[in-house]
Simulated scan of single mutants.
Amino acid sequence: MQRQIITTGFLLLSLIFPLKVLAKDYDNIYVFGDSFSDSGNVLNATNGVIPPSPTYYNGRFSNGPIWVDYLASDLGLTLNLKNNFAFGGATTGTENIGLPSLPGLQQEINSFVSAQTADPNALYIIWAGTNDYLSYFFGGVPNPTNTVGNLSAALTSLVADGARDIMVVNLPDLGKLPFANFDSQRSNLFNTFSSTHNSSLNTTLKSLRQQLDPDINIIELNVNSLFDRIIAAPDEFGFTNVTNSCISKDLSVVPIDVPTQQVLCNPEKFVFWDEVHPTTKTHKLIGELAFSALNLASVPEPSAALGILAYSVLGAVSLLKRKIPN
Rank of each mutant, 00 (worst) to 15 (best):
Q261L: 01
A72K: 03
F182R: 14
S207E: 13
D173Q: 04
G93Q: 15
F10R: 08
L171C: 05
T260L: 15
I286M: 12
I166A: 04
Y57V: 13
P103E: 00
R164D: 04
D74V: 00
N188G: 06
L134F: 11
T204L: 14
P51K: 07
S73T: 15
E95S: 15
A118N: 01
S152T: 15
T94M: 13
I126K: 06
A118L: 00
A160H: 09
N295M: 15
V317M: 01
L19E: 09
S303H: 06
L19R: 11
V299Y: 11
P259T: 09
A128T: 14
F239G: 03
A154T: 07
L221W: 04
T78H: 12
S62H: 02
A304W: 09
A122C: 12
G287Q: 01
S318V: 10
S187T: 06
E301S: 15
P255I: 06
P120H: 11
K20Q: 15
R209I: 11
L71S: 02
P234W: 02
N241S: 11
P142R: 03
K281I: 03
L205A: 06
V254F: 14
N266V: 09
D215F: 14
G315V: 06
N202R: 11
F291Q: 05
D213I: 02
L177I: 06
K176A: 10
L43I: 05
T243H: 08
C265W: 03
G175D: 02
P178H: 04
A304H: 08
G287F: 00
V141Y: 10
G149P: 09
K281D: 04
P18A: 05
K281H: 04
N96R: 10
L71Y: 00
R209M: 12
G48C: 03
P103R: 04
Y124M: 09
N41F: 06
I216R: 00
L174S: 07
S53A: 11
K284W: 06
Q4C: 13
N28V: 02
F239R: 04
K321W: 14
N44Y: 13
A72L: 01
S157M: 00
Q2H: 12
A304K: 13
L306Y: 14
I109D: 00
N58A: 11
P144N: 00
K206C: 11
S157P: 08
N44M: 15
Y30Q: 11
K284N: 09
L205Y: 03
Y124F: 07
P178N: 02
T156W: 13
S14L: 03
I66D: 06
R186G: 00
W127M: 13
T8S: 13
S298T: 05
V169D: 04
G162L: 02
K249M: 12
S184L: 11
L296S: 15
Q2F: 14
Q262K: 11
Y133S: 04
A310H: 00
Q185L: 14
P267M: 13
Q4T: 13
F272C: 01
G98N: 12
I16P: 07
A316T: 13
Q210P: 02
